[in-house]
Design a protein around this nucleic acid. Structure first.
Lengths: 229, 229
DNA sequence: ATTTATGCTGACCATTTGGTCAAGTTTCTT
DNA sequence: AAGAAACTTGACCAAATGGTCAGCATAAAT
């Protein structure tokens, strides 16, 4: 027993350093994969971004595929989160608004993760198919039933809940995935607080009014004027 | 004169065959590029998809980059179209509904074009930057002024028109770009008329109600029940 | 101090990549 | 019929790709 203390997550100084290196590589890989896609990212480029020799990446992750898969895996949790507030007893307007805001914040803070995800789905989502058909579908089903409950109780306008989710995902993630297009149209060098505030306000308006809802006080865009002035 | 009849678009049998070959190559390239992205598509794969030797593609387009650029160029027109109905004298609800329907139809009929476009924007849109900053921005500005006119006239709810466009683009294109995810969540092998009808109805509802509008007769989803039954 | 397990990396390899080219074939003009 | 122009393609190339591995360094355990 005394000699075999190598429990997988024993936080010895060894395991800690190993985890740090893994994070270092993954962080760099997220940047490179998000900017160039899977095929566009060469092991040489990934190694350069991480500041390590190529062989070192292979030591930690084996293959490029495995590194990519490890990266995607880390994102899945992010995707499923932020639906907490959607519960039967919640106020529909508040719950949906919180979800939209969380998604927008995610687009702002983790745009590379969003792009990585988009890249993978565009490629046919080979690595995500199990997750889509499993946990994601289950979550959407569960939350859709909550929304259908709200509708049945007359608390919001009849709406296809699954397609409502697709719409929210699309509108919020576009601020990460299609940032170059938005920047060009708005004629700004990059998306800042102003653009995200306007975007959030617009998405909130479409979702809430679209579902026949309004936030407490009847203000659909509570933070907007405050930010603008 | 008689000998130099080779006007660039003289539709001689020569020029016609040349154009046909170009289309044959472009059509195959759209498939391959859309499925694998620019870096993921090899000249060998492109040639195989077109049923031609590799050197033949180089004869017509020079480089892979040039072939890709030619392909993207063809899509730009598609992008700018479908805003015709958005004019000062139009009915806001009808105009926006027509635009949403046109965009949805485009996602259904040309999903590969949409994916190609998405792939390019994810890569930072190097080839599209001039188009974004030029014709696209100009078009959006023009149409945004129309919408602002509608708002000023009290014909629809106050809405940031540029962000409204971003939202419409995102919601409609997601049915092409993120099809694998939507299919998995809905548990269908592919998106058919039913899914597009539901999607269109939901997007229309969010956009129209979101903007304080409704279609003539107050029915937000005019075609929905007809299709379902 | 010595052994042992783990971490690290330069040099190397087979394969694939985008692209070229010379030698052909076909089609048009005269 | 002859020549010119456009088209086609197998064979080839230098460069880049993902991946391997033997040998070395470092730290842990004895």
């Amino acid at each position: 027993m005394s000699s075999s203390e190598a429990e997988s997550d024993a936080t010895g100084p060894r395991a800690r350093q190993r985890a740090a290196r893994r994070r270092q590589i993954l962080e760099a890989a997220e940047r490179v994969f998000a900017e160039t896609g899977f095929e566009g990212a060469s092991m040489a480029a990934l190694a350069a971004a991480a500041g390590l020799p190529k062989a070192n990446l292979h030591y930690y992750f084996g293959t490029k595929e495995a590194l990519y898969a490890a990266l995607l895996n880390d994102l899945l949790d992010l995707w499923l989160s932020a639906t907490d507030r959607i519960r039967p007893e919640s106020d529909p307007a508040e719950a949906l608004a919180a979800y939209v805001r969380a998604k927008m914040a995610w687009s702002r803070e983790r745009p590379r993760a969003s792009k990585l995800f988009a890249n993978e789905v565009l490629r046919g989502a080979p690595h995500l198919a199990p997750h889509f058909a499993g946990p994601l579908r289950a979550l959407v089903e569960e939350k859709s039933r909550v929304i259908e409950g709200w509708i049945a109780a007359g608390r919001m306008a009849p709406t296809e809940p699954r397609h409502l989710f697709f719409a929210i995902w699309a509108m919020t993630q576009t601020y990460a995935d299609f940032a170059p297009q938005i920047e060009a149209v708005l004629d700004v060098p990059s998306l800042g607080p102003r653009e995200f505030a306007d975007g959030t306000a617009t998405v909130l308006q479409l979702v809430l009014r679209g579902c026949g809802l309004s936030l407490a006080g009847g203000r659909v865009q509570p933070a907007l004027e405050a930010i603008r002035n």
